[in-house]
Amino acid sequence: MDINVMNLSKTYESNVEQKKVLDQVTFKVNKGEWVNIIGRSGSGKTTLLKCLSGIMSADRGSIINIGDLPIHSKSEEDRREFRRQHIGYIYQDYQLFPAYTAKQNVMLPELPYQNESILLKRAEELMEQLNIEHRQDALPNQLSGGEQQRVAIARALLNNPDIFVCDEPTGNLDRSTRDEVLQILKQLQEEGRTILFVTHDYDVIEYGDRIFEMDDGRLEEVSQKTLIIEKPIKN
């Protein structure tokens, strides 16, 4: 699925001030492309991902088209339905439910909508695919960071989404585990999925096709060379 964004703005309003976090962001991501988004903390990266995936509504005038669907004009209910069917979300802190086993966490996205036995079979397949089938009955606090992130990826894969939204998913992982996770995502990209990847990590940048940098709410495409030589990433 292509992603077309035009004039995407987002303003946070509080009683005392208005803060524009995204300012007229315009860009396009082609189907099957891996796009890395970099930028310092508070620059608006996470907000951009949330607006793209419909978790957060954008300001009036913003246009977000994913495939043929105008996300910006859809209701909260429709956006959730779209997200469930087309977007897989991965966080840095995994967002696993501590009460549930790894397998139950994988089944969770479709729990109200599909038969449990079908979900169970699908979860087992995904966990086997990600080499964590031996940990399927473990609780999150019994898993290593890499295992937890694999469980999170398996959960994001449950609906076979077209787009993966990754918010610093390797931030808490050691190098070898990080590489494993990136390899998995690379494989998913090769299968035709679009990947939006927020990171601070230069090594990750190598995996992407293009790089965008967020700075004070504005998004600008940069080359890898420019980035390394002229604009070192500031945390």
């Binding site: 978790i55 339905e81 779209f82 997200r83 469930r84 996205p109």
Partner: peptide, 8 residues
């Protein structure tokens, strides 16, 4: 997170 996953 349930909302993020698309639960109504």
């Amino acid at each position: 997170f349930l909302k993020v996953m698309g639960w109504q």
